[in-house]
Computed example of a mutant assay.
Amino acid sequence: MNISSIVIMTKPDKIQEVLKSLEESGLCDIHFYDERGRIIVTIEGEDVYEETFKLKAIQDIPYVVSAEMSFAYSEEELQKAINEFEKVQQEREVPEILEDENIKAEAIVYKGHIKAYLR
């Protein structure tokens, strides 16, 4: 499941018409609008293709000047990040150099991989 927010701009005198079209479309949930013609909505989709279809449909609504995705959430991306974090946690070991009391901290130069670098 993906969820994205979209910022929609319309002319202030057309905002009620655009709001009505958005409500009738069933494409999104309206969360905010103001007298300057800004509307904030969220869309949901099973994947990015469904979200893109909905975004394009919103962009095609009469009197919509612009409609662009602002923020996106993807369960798939979240799960990938969680898996990567868990993998790093499982593989994590303290490098021997950090356990050696005979090596002074000043002798360690970090360059992305602590095990390989000593002065």
Rank of each mutant, 00 (worst) to 15 (best):
E106F: 02
F71R: 05
R92V: 07
T52G: 02
L22V: 02
E17L: 12
C28N: 10
I97N: 06
V64L: 01
V7M: 07
H113C: 09
I61S: 01
L118N: 01
E68C: 10
M69Y: 09
I58L: 04
L78V: 07
E77C: 00
V41Q: 01
I114K: 13
G112L: 10
Q16G: 07
I58R: 12
A57H: 07
I97E: 12
R92N: 03
E76N: 05
L27D: 08
K115V: 07
F53A: 14
V7I: 14
S66H: 01
E17N: 13
N102M: 06
I61K: 05
V65G: 00
A67P: 02
E50F: 08
Y110H: 08
F85L: 14
I3Q: 01
L118M: 06
E46V: 09
V65Q: 03
E24H: 09
Y49A: 03
E24C: 08
L78F: 14
S5Q: 06
F32P: 04
G45E: 08
K14M: 09
K104E: 15
L27Q: 06
S70P: 10
I61L: 10
A107F: 03
G45F: 03
R38P: 03
L55Q: 11
Q90A: 09
A105N: 04
S74V: 04
E86D: 08
I61P: 02
A72S: 14
I114V: 15
F53C: 09
K115P: 04
I8V: 14
K14Q: 14
L22E: 04
D47R: 01
M9A: 11
I3K: 01
K104F: 13
L19R: 15
N83E: 15
K20N: 07
K20R: 12
D47N: 15
V65H: 00
S74D: 05
S5C: 09
S4L: 11
I6P: 03
K20F: 09
E91M: 05
Y117F: 12
D47L: 03
S66R: 13
T42G: 00
Q79V: 06
Y33F: 15
R92S: 06
A72R: 04
K54D: 11
I8E: 00
V18T: 07
Q89M: 15
E93Q: 05
C28H: 03
I40C: 01
V109C: 05
Q90K: 15
R92D: 00
A107R: 13
S4T: 14
E96N: 06
I30L: 02
Q59V: 09
V94T: 09
E86W: 15
M69A: 09
S4W: 04
D29Q: 07
I15P: 07
D60H: 13
R119P: 08
N83Q: 15
A67D: 00
K111V: 08
K54Q: 11
E75M: 07
E35I: 11
I39P: 08
R36G: 09
L19A: 02
T10Q: 07
T52V: 12
K54G: 11
R36F: 14
Q79G: 00
L55C: 11
S25D: 12
